[in-house]
Design a protein around this nucleic acid. Structure first.
Lengths: 228, 228
DNA sequence: CCTACCGATCGGTAGG
DNA sequence: CCTACCGATCGGTAGG
């Protein structure tokens, strides 16, 4: 049995003050999530500035002032969208990295690329596109926490790119490779149509074909990996 | 002597109503350009929505309502920024393409890439970044003319990419290659710092190193490149 | 979380 | 191109 022993938290065993509406209680934590989800969708469709807090409220059946019961400002809502998105994206990348850790570096990269495309385009993923497109509306103080998540996200890629470069299958400065690779993938939010002709798998394949160079031939007869 | 014989225009030989300030007269056509330039700069810095028509007016020393003497709406100003930017960008790409037409396909591509980076990052080039970032605020009817310019711009790339693919130096579907290549380059508007460590030349070199594959070896025995 | 509301801002216009 | 202004919208708040 794991028992939470967080020193803070005044042990809210029994409800205080608020009438015991169990149905509403159950929703309670979800209302905030509903707002974030609706905000993500609307921000993605129309942009942050063009979306009003009234739009977001209406999308979840609230009155115009009610979002401010959950969030201090419209910008805080945007921060929440980005943070939730990055937290989820990071989890997905971590899961993928673990699943494929025993495979070849090339296969690992393909898996990460595919996961990244899914983070951008999979069902219910408006969060990261919003982050990518609306990054500049936030001030540095507001993006501190998100930056930490982004660093962790990118951290999963660098060693892989380095090992592929060591194998001669990737060329150029690894830092630039990563930036250009993310650029190529992230830019899909400007042109890719999920209902269109190409699939995410085809996109991932194309990336690999374009970027991965042939394995250098072994020097001597029996060399197995390129070096030795 | 070229004499304007435009049937319309009631021949404004002598100034009517307005006092004959010749200096102001000389600026007349430039005021509009001033507005477009100021708009580009401000749109780039703060985004379209966050920039007010008052900001733009102030930037060129006008009163708040005066931009609407030159432009019907704020959106029209954005259209003008994009159109001017694309017209200039297209001219630059055309000039480059002509200058290097006798060089190898690889050199031609490198030249185009470098020019594109200059369109994005050279002095006074806020126009295209604005276009790339604010594309979605315009309705399809407003982007018709710009789309034609974009098609022409991209038209300069496709045959080159095709010939590089035929040489085996570029891999994957040419359409996707172009999209991913533009993506990688355009995404620099999100991270590149013109005052930073890397130069535009280094960026262009990195792109070539990453994307271009080794030339396939000749079929017959005397292989000259990687083998023997 | 709703009701009722404020204060500021902003695109745009009439009229010269 | 300026003066003076309108009308609407919008983020946010008090008070329950």
């Amino acid at each position: 049995m794991t028992v939470k022993v967080l020193a803070l938290n005044p042990a809210p065993k029994r409800p205080r003050g608020r009438p015991p509406k169990t149905a509403e209680q159950r929703d309670d934590g979800n209302r905030r999530r509903d707002l974030v989800r609706a905000a993500a969708k609307l921000f993605r469709q129309h942009g942050y500035d063009a979306t009003t807090t009234r739009d977001i409220a209406a999308a979840v059946g609230m009155q115009s002032g009610s979002p401010f019961y959950h969030f201090g400002s419209k910008a805080d809502l945007l921060v929440a969208v980005m943070e939730d998105g990055m937290r989820d994206g990071l989890a997905r990348v971590q899961a993928t990295a673990q699943q494929v850790q025993d495979q070849s570096a090339a296969r690992q990269l393909r898996a990460l690329v595919r996961t990244h495309l899914d983070v951008l385009w999979g069902p219910g993923s408006d969060f990261i596109p919003v982050m990518l497109q609306e990054w500049r509306v936030l001030k540095p103080t507001q993006t501190k926490g998100i930056n930490a998540l982004k660093d962790a996200y990118e951290g999963h890629w660098t060693p892989l790119l380095q090992s592929l470069k060591a194998q001669g299958r990737l060329r150029g400065d690894v830092g630039l490779v990563r930036l250009f690779l993310f650029g190529a993938l992230n830019w899909t939010i400007k042109w890719f149509d999920a209902r269109g002709s190409a699939s995410l798998d085809e996109l991932a394949d194309a990336v690999m074909v374009m970027w991965l160079h042939d394995e250098p031939e072994p020097e001597t007869g029996g060399g197995q990996d390129g070096t030795v």
